[in-house]
Design a protein around this nucleic acid. Structure first.
Lengths: 210, 210
DNA sequence: GACTTCTGGTACTTGCACGTACCGGAAATG
DNA sequence: CATTTCCGGTACGTGCAAGTACCAGAAGTC
């Protein structure tokens, strides 16, 4: 069923496939999801419009495919033995990615569309966030086991404090995305969620509504 | 020269002014900056298209005016005597604003346009951020003077840690914007940037600090 | 060779939405 | 009253871009 379909006639050029998706991503980054023209995609990819519409039924489909086709970066969970060093390394990777790269210019233009198309939102979160979040979770978990972090920390909050300021600067304030940010949030998490409170009785510990 | 211009003929209806801007904001919130139609604005405002174009030369101008016409909420700097309480109150205000309100639905659709139009970015930052940032800065400054916070804290980082997670959830993850978030970031700042009288080496093992 | 489906390129149709023009009527001035 | 400019509503012109159709040629299978 799968390969038998593809035997007759001239096969599709894989370079054309890639050129189309690449040009689409660049144009989304430059102009926005709704503000680029398929004709520009064709021109930039050095391709005919026919080649685009032979692959994707509509512009919307093209956009979704371009985002879904992004290869999520291979994130390796660092194991330096130091919780701080592990955190900082992951944050450094994020800083590097969102400082000037395609992803950085892509993200602001995706936010609006994400609010409108849940499937696109899912794809973005999957490609850009899921991997790093999982890695950070793992590092935090190890930090707890190692005794560097309190066991009752709000994991979701910790992840959002690590990632939030970076995206806040990228999307809203335009502030610097640099090494200082990476180390700053890591240190803040380490100090703010350090194992310390002994006597302090936290109420509502039983009820942990998500 | 100023009032003499406006003396002849039927004066403009202030209710029409407001209806147009209000409908514009709602439609930006619902569909996005580039995805709504001026005809829809007219229909929703119960207004003719002429009334719109008599006021604004183009759709772009209308959008800018609608954002610029937003009244930035009157933020009062709390003075409870407690740095934590002051911080939490400001964060609670922010949580309230960005939980379900027009501003919350507006923001995602503005991000993309901000990246394209610097003037719009300026307006958004002015209307939505500036006031709260100034208030938070003031509270943090007082926290330093009061001895609750270290004097060498990275102010920009602190502000972004307070605001970042909220926007991260609003724009990216879709996570809960609630009281827990407000208190969580406030507490994290207080613990993470607490005054540390001791030396930098973390030799004090599990010592109970006051 | 015959046949099929690809290729980039161009010309075309079509629809949507911005912006304009005009209507009869209303609200102001003088 | 005349005049002016507003009002909501509708009809129209216009331009841009999505999507289609077709070209001549290329790259495959049989």
């Amino acid at each position: 069923m799968l390969e038998s379909e593809r035997s007759l006639g001239r096969p599709r050029d894989a370079r054309t496939d890639r050129a189309i998706l690449e040009a689409t991503l660049e144009l989304i980054a430059e102009r926005g999801v709704h503000e680029f023209r398929t004709e520009d995609v064709a021109a930039r990819a050095g391709v005919g419009k026919g080649a685009i519409y032979r692959r994707y039924g509509s512009k919307d489909e093209l956009v979704t495919a371009a985002i879904a086709g992004l290869v999520s970066e291979g994130i390796v969970i660092p194991e330096t033995g130091s919780t701080r060093e592990d955190l900082v390394r992951l944050m450094r990777q994020a800083v590097e990615l969102y400082r000037g790269s395609l992803a950085a210019r892509l993200m602001p233009n995706l936010i609006g569309a994400m609010a409108q198309k849940p499937e696109l939102a899912g794809a973005v979160r999957e490609r850009f966030l899921a991997g790093r979040c999982a890695a950070l979770s793992e590092v935090l978990q190890r930090g707890i086991e190692r005794g560097d972090l309190r066991s009752d920390l709000d994991l979701e909050l910790a992840l959002d404090v690590l990632g939030g300021p970076l995206f806040y600067r990228l999307l809203v304030t335009g502030g610097p995305i640099d090494e200082r940010l990476a180390e700053g949030v890591a240190d803040l998490i380490l100090r703010g969620f350090a194992t310390r409170p002994r006597a302090k009785s936290r109420n509502a510990r039983k009820e942990q509504t998500a």
